[in-house]
Amino acid sequence: MYVLLTNLARMRRRIGLTRQPPASCAIRHVDAGSCNGCEHELIAAGGPRYDLARYGFAITASPRHADVLLVTGPITTRMLEPLRRAYASMPEPRLVAALGDCPLGGGVTAHPHEVAGPLDAVLPVDIRIPGCPPSPDRIAEALREGLAGLPRERRPW
């Protein structure tokens, strides 16, 4: 275990990520019918190579204390109600981000009877992160740009 931890620490120093001044933003992820590609890249974004936490982003287990609802997938009819409930459970002010081409209306070609999307048709979208899937560094960058572009009273800090 000692060797393993040393290797990880060495890798982190080698890739030389820049660190940011502290801020915080809690993100609740909801999969509304994705192919799991955006989930893989979101997990990678939080991993040792990209380290989403250095910007103050944290993935939370509950919508009740989330600042951002991060939605993937084309919004299947079966996920519409759980998605709406997650949004309704969030405190104000709350933001919605669309991760990947699917919630933005591109991406997968689903059967029209099985989807309620795009996300725009269901919830107000504040941040758009296109890509199929967007790469981990692009996710971090787009979240930061998206938040920075919002009027001050809508930002979580």
């Binding site: 019918g33 079966r78 996920m79 997968v108 059967h111 099985e114």
Partner: peptide
């Protein structure tokens, strides 16, 4: 099946190339 997108039915009626693009997602 919360993520059911009807992809088989969406692919049907298309050319094999177009069906591949549907199923590959």
């Amino acid at each position: 099946f919360h993520k059911h997108r009807g992809l088989e039915r969406a692919a049907e009626g298309r050319s094999p190339d177009a069906a591949l693009r549907v199923l590959s997602r």
